[in-house]
Design a protein around this nucleic acid. Sequence first.
DNA 1: ATTACCGTTGACGTGAACGGAAACCAATCT
DNA 2: AGATTGGTTTCCGTTCACGTCAACGGTAAT
Lengths: 171, 171
Amino acid sequence: MTDTRAEPDTRAEDEPRLRIGEMAKETGLTSRTLRYWEEIGLLRPVAHRGSGERLYSLAERERVVHIRELQDLLGLTLAEIHDVLASEDTLERVRRATRASAPTPKRLGLLEDAIAANETLVQRINERLERIGEFRDQCLARGDRMRARRVDLEAEIADQRPRPRPKGRPG
Amino acid sequence: MTDTRAEPDTRAEDEPRLRIGEMAKETGLTSRTLRYWEEIGLLRPVAHRGSGERLYSLAERERVVHIRELQDLLGLTLAEIHDVLASEDTLERVRRATRASAPTPKRLGLLEDAIAANETLVQRINERLERIGEFRDQCLARGDRMRARRVDLEAEIADQRPRPRPKGRPG
DNA sequence: ATTACCGTTGACGTGAACGGAAACCAATCT
DNA sequence: AGATTGGTTTCCGTTCACGTCAACGGTAAT
């Protein structure tokens, strides 16, 4: 019981909100990491329901996943990630601030900034894909050389093996 | 003069050998990094000509580039890289040790180990390529959504713009 | 011979990205 | 009521991958 539901806390959109432990499990991170990311300004949970308990929205969870990918797949530092998400953030902030207010004459500019940022990101990704592709080709080439060397070795061994039995066996 | 050439030092294959500074410049690393990598067992320069001066072969330079790619493109730690290069290393060591000696019956095994290691590496690379590809697709989708939103916004603005000037000025 | 340059070996410092423990709330289970 | 669970802040510790500095040595040119 103790129906603590329906608290209009910061904003009462009925999105399910995650506690930090749930968030951690769903994203595969630790609570510590989530707090740290918040500390350096990468995350902004609804924070502090009643006591000081953080609550995360689904958007926040998406964001966490996004950050993780920028970190793991592109090898960006958290500072770089901060920059990458900057335009996206201002866009979101303005979007919330002007909820059905102005005709949004400059929101368009923000949006275009975000679009541009996204495109440079895609470009970085493409470069990386290319470089990794080249690297893979090199590895494949190495593999081919080694396999060629292997058949040579096998042949040499086969040539030398019959010595204890020089009469040759056709089968 | 002081023709210090032709010193049969460790082995006198006439490969050009690089000093640590040259190596650093060619690979874009620092001397410190090269020493550090040696310290943790990733590199093994011919070392110590006369005094304690390191000299690197071309093979070593290739190796450095390889390590850099494993580090940057795949995000492996130096410890992981150490593991990845392990089979390759033993192969090389055995290859040097048995220079035209045995018919190499078990060298084949080493070679096959190296081939296997290379294949798992290629697999890791492929997985990564796939994940990055998915990530890129997500980013592209985001971009599409934002662009769609943009045309909406432009339409809204165009609808609302005429209000301050209802009389319409064609010029 | 002096200077300049490049190298060497320690040893300690550093920034990034957290880990972990202490001391303390708040809700929940038994 | 007491214990458990899961959250909070604060602060210090840690790992990785080097950076940096001191003290020193060999080689080459001036």
